[in-house]
Amino acid sequence: MTDLPGHHYHIEIPGTTIFDGKQAMKGYALNKMCYDFNKAENREGFKADEEGWMEKYGLNDEQKTACRNRDVLGMINAGGNIYYLAKFAGIFKLSVQDVGGLQTGRTTEEFQDFLQSQA
């Protein structure tokens, strides 16, 4: 790993997708769509026509499959940024703790217990 001006490095954390510039470019369409879920009418529009909405934003097949399956980890792997994906998860009544459980391989309750144990 080189930490010199002009050199880029990537830290490997097993089982973790690092959101870096490459991931940001990969997930641009997905993140743009999720950002637009800040508006209630866009969330409703997505629920009314998910396929049309994904097509409108130009999601690729990997992103579409992850969205169809409500697979937040798949969306992260497809370039999704968790801050934008929170809006997507909210459409389906998934809390941040639900997503935290998914990210760590725990149930929501196990994740909540974990958080409490760290307090």
Rank of each mutant, 00 (worst) to 15 (best):
G58R: 02
T16W: 09
Q103N: 14
K32H: 12
C34D: 08
E41S: 12
G15S: 07
W53I: 05
D49R: 04
D98K: 00
G15Q: 03
A24F: 08
N60G: 08
K56F: 03
A48S: 13
C67W: 02
M75S: 07
T16M: 13
E41W: 09
S95G: 07
G27T: 07
Q97H: 13
L85G: 05
F19D: 08
G45S: 10
E50Q: 12
G80C: 05
R43E: 14
A40S: 14
G45L: 04
I82M: 10
A29I: 06
D71I: 06
G45M: 08
G90Y: 04
R43W: 01
E41A: 08
K22D: 15
C34T: 10
A48M: 05
A66C: 12
Y28A: 14
N42R: 06
K47G: 03
N81W: 10
F19L: 13
M33Y: 13
Y57E: 01
W53N: 12
G79Y: 06
D98G: 02
Q97P: 09
G74K: 05
N69T: 07
K26R: 15
F37W: 08
F92L: 03
L94P: 00
F88V: 01
E51A: 14
A86Q: 13
M25F: 04
N42G: 02
D20V: 01
G21Y: 11
L102R: 11
D36V: 00
K26D: 13
A89P: 06
A29D: 14
F46M: 07
M75K: 04
V99A: 05
E12D: 15
G52Y: 01
D71P: 07
K39A: 15
Q103M: 14
L73W: 03
Y35W: 10
C34Y: 13
G15D: 11
E44R: 08
N38I: 03
E62R: 02
E44W: 00
A48K: 15
D98A: 02
L59N: 06
G15A: 04
G58M: 02
Y83T: 14
A29F: 04
T17V: 14
P14A: 12
C67N: 04
Q63D: 06
A24H: 11
F88L: 05
N38H: 13
D49W: 00
N42L: 05
Y84N: 15
G52N: 00
K56Y: 05
D71K: 05
I82R: 01
K22N: 15
L30G: 11
A78K: 03
E12S: 14
A66Q: 12
D71M: 02
G74C: 01
G90V: 06
D36Y: 04
L85N: 05
F19W: 14
V72G: 05
A78P: 08
N69G: 06
Y83N: 15
P14K: 00
E50F: 00
D71G: 12
E62L: 01
A24D: 12
N31Q: 08
I82P: 00
C67E: 13
Q63T: 06
K87H: 15
Q63V: 09
L102N: 08
L94N: 02
F92A: 07
G90W: 00
Y83Q: 09
K26E: 14
N31G: 13
V72I: 15
E51W: 00
N81F: 11
L85R: 11
I82N: 06
G58D: 06
V72K: 07
G79W: 08
L102V: 02
P14F: 00
A66E: 10
L85T: 13
K39L: 14
D71A: 04
